[in-house]
């Protein structure tokens, strides 16, 4: 095949082409935009630290989370104890860096293992909501019609019943432990993902590049994965990230109410509940896990916000 005769405008085209800036994928642009946002970068650092702490809990904790020495119950942290050993470096390596709780368990170790609980809950719950909500929403948005109205009725039902009440009901019914806290939060919290997936698939279905793929003779499944999912991924990742602090707070709330993680396993929410009785003297026992919850939630929220701005297709222009 011979190349086409385009006498006058071939030059202008190649001239135009040489002015195109260096190859810049949407992905790389997103990463650049993300790190330009300072809060998001700080959030990412905290998320990495907290997740790492949770993963490496057995290495960081000084003892086991359930090792109780009743004789040492309610010990002050060495640094706060006036009779304790100053100067500072010493107390970092003390037997109980943050003192002990009401039955003599090392508070520091429980805090670290609490991070592990929070991380397990924080990542599993959004995964379950994604696994339920995304296929439902995608089917509703893609097929429309009767499928859409059926899914919408289900979504309306779930919206009408407060999800925390439903979760409480299910937890009382089936008993509460870490696994049930995750499952029931998951099956009561998929509405948002479903709505988002539906909206994404509905708008992308009408885009010209999807029509072009169909005109090429591509099967509907291939179109969904190659063209729709790739473009819907950004908002869904953001939704997932922003779902993490919600799940962590939900677990903390349920544990505070006594319907969360069961007993020897520590959880920040439960630690707040257990310590609030001694708050007049041992105020830090409630403050420290509360602070941990707050910092973790903030970090994930900043991370999610940063991802949203970075993955926003509007910013690509």
């Amino acid at each position: 095949m011979t190349s086409l005769q385009l006498p006058s405008d071939t030059d202008t085209i190649s001239g135009e082409a040489s002015r195109i800036e260096a190859a810049n994928s949407p992905m790389r642009q997103s990463i650049q935009r993300f790190f330009r946002n300072r809060l998001a970068a700080i959030g990412l650092v905290f998320v990495v630290v907290i997740t790492g702490g949770g993963l490496l809990a057995p290495l960081i904790a000084t003892t086991s989370y359930d090792y109780s020495v009743l004789r040492d119950a309610l010990k002050f942290p060495p640094c706060a104890d006036p009779k304790g050993s100053l100067p500072f470096p010493d107390c970092m390596f003390a037997k109980y860096p943050l003192g002990t709780d009401a039955i003599g368990r090392d508070f520091w170790s429980r805090l670290i293992y609490g991070a592990r609980t929070s991380m397990i809950v924080g990542f599993s719950v959004p995964l379950i909501t994604l696994a339920i909500g995304l296929p439902l929403g995608a089917a509703a948005g893609w097929f429309g019609g009767r499928v859409d109205s059926t899914v919408l009725r289900l979504v309306e039902f779930m919206t009408a019943v407060p999800s925390i009440l439903l979760a409480l009901f299910l937890l009382t019914l089936f008993g509460h432990d870490l696994q049930n806290v995750i499952i029931f939060q998951g099956i009561t919290g998929w509405v948002g993902v479903c709505r988002l997936g539906r909206a994404q698939f509905m708008t992308l279905r009408e885009r010209d590049f999807v029509t072009a793929a169909r005109a090429l003779g591509m099967s509907e499944w291939s179109i969904m994965f190659r063209h729709v999912m790739v473009n819907a991924a950004g908002p869904i990742i953001v939704m997932f990230t922003l779902g993490i602090p919600g799940a962590i707070f939900g677990e903390a709330g349920l544990s505070f109410l006594g319907l969360g993680v069961n007993d020897p396993i520590p959880s920040w929410g439960k630690m707040v509940a257990e310590s609030s009785r001694f708050a007049s003297v041992y105020w830090y026992l409630a403050m420290i896990p509360t602070g941990c919850i707050a910092v973790t939630m903030l970090a994930f929220s900043f991370l999610g916000d940063g991802l949203r701005d970075a993955l926003d297709p509007q910013g690509q222009r």
């Binding site: 095949m1 085209i13 690509q316």
Partner: peptide, 20 residues
Amino acid sequence: LVGLPGSAMGRFPHEFSGGQ
């Protein structure tokens, strides 16, 4: 054939003008 350089292959649509 359509008057684009071969170097366009690895680029993304947002890097091109409307005509391109």
